[in-house]
């Protein structure tokens, strides 16, 4: 079976600055891969390339064995770092719009919207304008939207930015459960090591556009002689998380 996401030899530069340098990475179904890196590591560039916002000039990206094309993107859900909801539309109108863009319609779309809102505890807010929601609820709507078309691969670009601690922890648990219980493949970019589940997650450490280390947490810590992820992150990047 093909990997959910297979990246090989991916490079990207902005003028003279090398933003990504021969990146190789694989995420399998049911796996949560945390893409860890300090600011400026190249995470957003990678997301730009994965979502066709940037042109791939060197290297390749394959999603379930297919090159990056419209058909492959149909199996991908994306939560961007920036808020991307229409503030003037209601929660339901936002989801309806996105569902239609994904080719969903009619009863199927209505049922999916209901199910996702229920799952993310937003059912009571479906007719509220997004402008009236707090940051945590907006984030949940974005996640509901990304899951609406039942993607097999979920791309998350710093999804907990700007959230208070309890909301953040709820979201982290929820996202981990998606991989563990529902078999979704997750690529989750962050610079915060406390978002990592050391028992289950795969780790990929990106620094100055290069992949410094990847694999399961325990062997990575053992190889570096570190006891905790914070120390390991600092050991490799010189930055604190």
């Amino acid at each position: 079976m093909s990997a959910a996401l297979h990246i090989a030899g991916l490079s990207h530069r902005y003028g003279a600055r090398q933003a990504l340098d021969k990146l190789a990475l694989q995420v399998d179904a049911g796996q949560c891969c945390i893409l860890l890196g300090p600011n400026g590591a190249g995470k957003s560039t990678l997301f730009g390339l994965l979502t066709r916002l940037l042109a791939v000039r060197e290297g390749s990206i394959r999603i379930f064995g297919q090159p990056l094309c419209a058909r492959a993107l149909a199996r991908v859900g994306v939560v961007f770092q920036q808020p991307t909801l229409d503030l003037d539309l209601t929660v339901e109108q936002n989801l309806r719009y996105f569902g239609a863009l994904q080719g969903l319609h009619g009863k199927q779309l209505i049922l999916r919207i209901g199910a996702e809102l229920e799952r993310l505890q937003l059912a009571a807010r479906r007719r509220e304008r997004v402008r009236e929601l707090n940051g945590g609820h907006r984030r949940r709507v974005e996640i509901a939207r990304a899951l609406l078309h039942r993607p097999a691969l979920l791309l998350l670009d710093e999804p907990t930015v700007g959230l208070d601690l309890p909301t953040r922890q709820q979201l982290i648990d929820y996202l981990h459960a998606l991989a563990r219980d529902e078999g979704l493949a997750l690529l989750w970019a962050t610079h915060l090591v406390d978002e990592i589940d050391p028992q289950h997650d795969q780790l990929a450490l990106l620094h100055r556009g290069r992949l410094l280390a990847s694999g399961a947490v325990a062997p990575l810590l053992a190889d570096a002689g570190c006891h905790d992820l914070g120390g390991w992150f600092q050991h490799h990047t010189g930055a604190t998380s």
Binding site: T51, R52, L53, A70, R71, A72, L73, A74, V78, F80, Q82, P83, T84, L85, D86, F98, L101, Q102, G103
Partner: peptide, 15 residues
Amino acid sequence: EMGSMRVLLTCPQPL
């Protein structure tokens, strides 16, 4: 700038 254009451009349809 706010990102919602990204949602449109990343949906699985020809640009």
